[in-house]
């Protein structure tokens, strides 16, 4: 009788009924909403009696090369179900979306971390500063195109050490 994962489609219908035009895409695993409507969607999800998503379990920023993605994992403690909410940001230079710190104060430090490591600005965040790195740090390390590493190599292994077309310098 574990935590039930709410299907994205059913959530999309429920959101459409309340806020038309806010759902961008719906997949069984998650539902994607337009970034600017994140706060209203969040407030609805938290206050709706059937859903009552009062616990923001995890907030993550993912760099998918052509766009950024902010993933919210929301959990309801009373109904014991979990849902995944996503918001895609297409501009690479200064991605921006409203902060949910007003809906779930727990996002306070997680948003600061996303800003610090991924460079996503959260409008309306009470104290948006870098969390781990010092103020003058050049760039945001978790971005795929941040090539601060020696040899300016793209992160991620193409092949395994020992596989035929392994071209690493004998590491591994």
């Amino acid at each position: 009788m574990g935590t039930r994962l709410l299907s994205g489609l059913e959530l999309a219908h429920r959101l459409e009924r309340v806020m038309p035009g806010v759902v961008v895409e719906a997949v069984p695993e998650w539902v994607e909403v337009s970034p600017q409507a994140v706060v209203d969607v969040g407030r609805f999800l938290r206050d709706d009696p059937e859903l009552e998503m009062n616990f923001l379990s995890c907030l993550t920023a993912v760099d998918l090369l052509d766009h950024f993605e902010v993933v919210y994992h929301l959990q309801s403690l009373r109904h014991n179900h979990l849902m995944v909410l996503k918001a895609k940001l297409w501009e690479r230079e200064s991605p921006e979306l409203p902060s949910v710190a007003s809906v779930w104060p727990g996002a306070h430090l997680q948003e600061r971390e996303a800003y610090d490591l991924m460079g996503i600005r959260f409008r309306g965040h009470p104290d948006l500063r870098r969390l781990f790195l010092w103020e003058g740090f050049p760039g945001h390390p978790l971005r795929k195109d941040w090539l601060g590493m020696p040899g300016q190599r793209m992160p991620g292994l193409e092949t395994f050490p020992g596989e035929p077309e392994w071209r690493g310098e004998g590491r591994g």
Binding site: H108, Q110, E113
Partner: peptide
Amino acid sequence: GFYVVSDGGPSPFRFHIRSPSLINLTP
């Protein structure tokens, strides 16, 4: 929690750790 994203490659595309100590510090 561990939020892992895979693009089919040998190494994780995104590896995020939901660290309880950090979030417990918020209040």
